[in-house]
């Protein structure tokens, strides 16, 4: 596997408190990775470090063989709260991103490309509206269009759908699944939603509770693609996969202690499991 991004021994500390440390994982080109864990384990911080918005207290992020020093157009971020500029129209927000990527493009060229990007997320009719005139789901679509419009090598998403109602969230999840598989977009997403992770991710990183959080386990998602919300729960192995992750979130995320990890655990080689292939026996706890 050719790793595009490699997170190496990253840590975040606030004074004497270590939120997480010794976090190691890689993301291959074309791979979509989800990070799942409870609040307070530092998920957003890991994403910000990956984006280059924050510097880790320890360790480094290697992209294409080089340690990153700051944010880059190659790693586009879809923010949790859409983060659209309210004084620009939807097209204006996307065009602003495009004009940053293509400094030599004319205003008209940026605008045309912005409208094209909005069309890909089904928002061409709302291009001239201000964010205040858009629904929550539409705003987040614009945020996704803005991220994809700059053709990033990697898409970083920080709980992009958590503020949306269930129906809108489902529609957007399908749409992101489609966009990601169409373009073989490398992606990294933080989520609370187990089904969302199973729908989108090739690999799901399970993080133990903070402080002293670690990546406790890597779950390989072996369910066949394309996956949609409609067919997902009919796939063989889906329930085993889902139960495995839920079990982790409910019990094992708390039980995992970094100073006394399971015998087969090591920070650099976190155990990988494929619950969808070989369902573990019930009552494994």
């Amino acid at each position: 596997m050719t790793e595009y991004v490699s997170i190496e021994g990253v840590a975040r500390r606030y004074g004497p408190t270590t939120i997480f440390q010794d976090v190691w994982f890689g993301i291959a080109r074309g791979e979509f990775v989800c990070l799942v864990g409870h609040s307070g384990c530092g998920k957003t911080t890991i994403l910000n470090i990956l984006a280059g918005l924050e510097a880790p207290d320890d360790g480094a992020v290697i992209v294409d063989g080089q340690a990153i020093t700051g944010p880059s157009l190659d790693r586009a971020v879809v923010f949790q709260g859409h983060a659209l500029m309210p004084w620009m129209t939807a097209a204006g927000n996307v065009a602003f991103a495009i004009s940053c990527r293509h400094r030599d493009w004319s205003r008209a060229a940026c605008d045309a490309a912005a409208r094209e990007a909005l069309k890909r997320v089904g928002l061409d009719h709302a291009a001239d509206r201000k964010p205040a005139e858009l629904s929550g789901g539409m705003k987040q679509r614009v945020g996704i269009a803005r991220a994809l419009a700059i053709n990033p090598k990697m898409l970083l998403m920080d709980e992009p759908f958590s503020a949306l109602d269930a129906l809108t969230r489902g529609a957007l999840q399908d749409e992101v699944a489609r966009l990601v598989s169409e373009t073989e977009q490398t992606g990294f997403m933080i989520t609370h939603d187990v089904d969302e992770a199973i729908l989108l991710a090739d690999r799901i990183l399970l993080m133990s509770n903070g402080p002293e959080a670690r990546i406790a386990e890597v779950v390989l998602n072996t369910l066949p693609k394309p996956r949609t919300r409609a067919n997902l729960h009919h796939m063989p192995g889906y329930h085993a996969l889902r139960d495995h992750i839920l079990d982790f979130l409910i019990a094992r995320s708390r039980a995992f202690k970094a100073d006394a990890p399971p015998a087969d655990w090591s920070a650099r080689a976190v155990p990988e499991v494929s619950p969808a292939l070989s369902p573990p026996p019930l009552a494994a706890e």
Binding site: A51, S72, R75, A76, V77, F79, A83, R101
Partner: peptide, 13 residues
């Protein structure tokens, strides 16, 4: 808003 500045930073504005 910090998030708008972060958008600008990730876009290398």
């Amino acid at each position: 808003r910090r998030e708008w500045l972060n958008v600008a930073r990730t876009l290398e504005a």
